[in-house]
Simulated assay, not measured.
Amino acid sequence: MVNIRSFKELRVWNNAIDVAMNIFEITKSFPVEERFSLTDQIRRSSRSVAANITEAWRKRRYPAAFVSKLSDAESEAAETQTWIEIALRCGYLTKEEASYLDSRCEEVLGQIVAMINHPEKWTIRSNSSALRS
């Protein structure tokens, strides 16, 4: 594995940021009356995915905390998919836009789940056993 020094080098983080920015741009065209409801909700959940990945990265000394924050990111990505579906059904997104955003969320979800399933590839191993010798 490549020596990743920053969360900004993670493909999953970059993909999550891209989704959040796509959603930000697309939601600029949502009706003004949705500003404090749907627009706010979908922007918050999409941004939270990357933020939780960042928090997970900083907690990788503790595998359970790492997995917990990734689980939060997974939940936020799934929530974002729900808001995408609602925006589609309200007529604020075209089928093509919704499909694209949903597929990007699925990509991020797959990457997060892969990290959750193999935290040992990402977490920092403790040298405490070496210190006891």
Rank of each mutant, 00 (worst) to 15 (best):
F24N: 07
V19E: 02
W57E: 03
R104N: 05
R104M: 13
T94C: 09
A56V: 05
N3H: 12
D102W: 15
L70V: 03
A64T: 10
R89F: 08
E25Q: 11
S68E: 11
V32D: 10
D18V: 04
S6M: 03
R47W: 06
S71T: 10
E107P: 02
E9Y: 13
M21D: 13
T54A: 13
C105I: 01
E79G: 04
R43F: 04
A98E: 05
L38G: 00
V113H: 06
A56T: 01
D102P: 00
E79Y: 00
V2K: 10
S99K: 13
N127E: 07
E55Q: 07
S71L: 04
E25R: 13
M1I: 12
N3P: 09
K95T: 08
E25L: 14
E76I: 07
S103N: 14
P119S: 06
S71Y: 12
C90V: 08
I42N: 03
S6Q: 10
R58A: 12
T123Y: 03
A51C: 04
R5Q: 14
A65E: 10
A56W: 01
I86R: 00
I86A: 00
F24T: 08
F36D: 07
L93W: 06
L131H: 12
T39R: 00
N3K: 08
I124Q: 14
I124W: 15
K8G: 12
M21G: 00
S133Q: 10
W13S: 04
N117Y: 06
R35Y: 09
N3L: 11
S99D: 14
V2C: 02
T123I: 15
N127Q: 10
N22S: 15
F7P: 00
R132G: 03
V108M: 09
I26K: 02
V32F: 06
T80V: 03
Y100F: 12
P119I: 02
E9F: 14
I112G: 08
E34T: 04
S75V: 07
D40Y: 03
N117R: 14
R89K: 15
A16H: 03
E97N: 13
I84D: 02
D72C: 07
A87F: 03
R132D: 10
S103F: 11
F30E: 07
I86V: 14
S46D: 04
M1W: 05
S46E: 05
K121A: 09
Y92V: 02
L10Q: 00
G110C: 08
L93F: 08
L101D: 01
F66L: 11
A65N: 09
N3Q: 11
N15P: 03
A87D: 05
E120N: 10
R60W: 12
P119H: 07
E25V: 11
M115Q: 06
A73C: 06
A77L: 04
E106A: 08
C105S: 02
R60Y: 14
I84A: 02
A87H: 08
F30A: 09
F7R: 07
L131E: 14
N52Y: 07
S103H: 10
Y100W: 15
R43L: 05
T94R: 09
N22P: 03
F7I: 09
I84E: 00
L38V: 04
I17L: 11
I23Y: 01
T123P: 02
R47M: 13
R104I: 10
R44N: 11
W57N: 01
Y92A: 01
D72A: 07
S46H: 01
I4P: 06
R47C: 08
L38T: 02
A114K: 15
I23W: 00
E79M: 00
